[in-house]
Computed example of a mutant assay.
Amino acid sequence: MGVFDRGRRWLGRRTAPAAEVPPVEDLTDAELQDRVAALLAAELGPAEPGEEHPTSVTPARIAAWMTDHDFSYFVDNDGDLGGLWRGRLFYFFLFGERSEILQVRGQWHREASIERLEEVLDLCNEWNAERIWPKAYVRVRDNGRVHVVSEVAVDLEHGATDAQLGQLLYCGLSTGSMLFDALDERYPDPAGVAP
């Protein structure tokens, strides 16, 4: 029995005895969605409409969030919005035909030698296998130095409320910092280590 089948059986048991409603397998998609909504309402309480409607994400909204939270930011020569968070450089990009994909991209403030490429790749792969955010990867520069990058991207085709946008920005910054903290722990700065 697959995970989906077990989930359908669990859902059928949780909502009502089998004698009162048809088995989950016999429900249409709309009926199944209604049953899921009823289960969520019973478990979490009824949904309350938000006071705010999602709107398009713009660089101005991102900058306003930064200002509201006392984060300094800059706009570089290419017009990209960036800032420092705990001493690490992060950029905030909007991609897609309608600039609907928000990406928070961070860069570790240190670099590794090319000889450490394999072990840094292993660390990134391990991170990606165990965590949802951020995506971790490396870039090898022309000078042979290895830079580690964090990335959180989300499709906001239908926009985001201020609270949602703030949560996504904070997610990108905080999870990127967690990755960089793990790198700092694995590779202590020689200047910070006593001889």
Rank of each mutant, 00 (worst) to 15 (best):
G12M: 05
G12H: 03
G12N: 06
R13P: 02
R14Y: 06
T15M: 08
A16V: 07
A16N: 07
A18Q: 11
A18H: 10
A18K: 11
A18G: 11
A19H: 15
E20P: 01
E20S: 15
E20Y: 11
V21D: 00
V21L: 15
P23H: 12
P23A: 14
V24R: 02
E25R: 12
E25M: 05
E25N: 06
D26W: 08
D26G: 02
L27D: 05
T28D: 09
T28P: 02
D29K: 12
D29W: 14
E31A: 15
E31K: 08
L32R: 12
L32M: 13
L32N: 05
Q33N: 09
D34V: 08
D34W: 09
R35G: 04
R35F: 04
R35I: 08
V36A: 11
V36Y: 05
V36N: 04
V36D: 00
A37T: 09
A37P: 00
A38K: 11
A38C: 10
A38V: 12
A38F: 10
L39N: 03
L39H: 09
L40C: 08
L40F: 09
A41K: 10
A41D: 13
L44G: 06
L44M: 13
L44K: 09
L44Y: 12
G45R: 06
P46A: 14
P46N: 11
P46G: 10
A47T: 10
E48C: 08
P49V: 10
P49Q: 10
E51C: 08
E52M: 11
E52R: 13
H53N: 12
H53V: 14
T55W: 08
S56G: 15
S56K: 14
V57T: 13
T58C: 01
P59T: 04
P59H: 09
R61Q: 09
R61T: 08
I62F: 06
I62E: 03
I62V: 15
A64L: 14
A64P: 02
W65H: 15
W65T: 07
W65L: 11
M66S: 03
M66V: 03
M66G: 04
T67M: 10
D68G: 14
D68F: 05
D68Y: 06
H69S: 10
D70R: 15
F71W: 14
F71V: 03
F71T: 06
S72F: 08
S72V: 05
Y73R: 05
Y73G: 03
F74A: 12
V75R: 02
V75G: 01
D76Y: 00
D76S: 02
D78K: 03
D78I: 01
G79K: 01
D80K: 00
D80I: 01
L81Q: 00
L81E: 00
G82Y: 01
G82W: 05
G82V: 04
G83W: 05
G83I: 00
W85G: 05
R86G: 02
R86K: 13
F90D: 01
F90L: 01
F90I: 02
Y91S: 02
Y91W: 03
F92C: 09
F93L: 15
L94T: 03
L94Y: 02
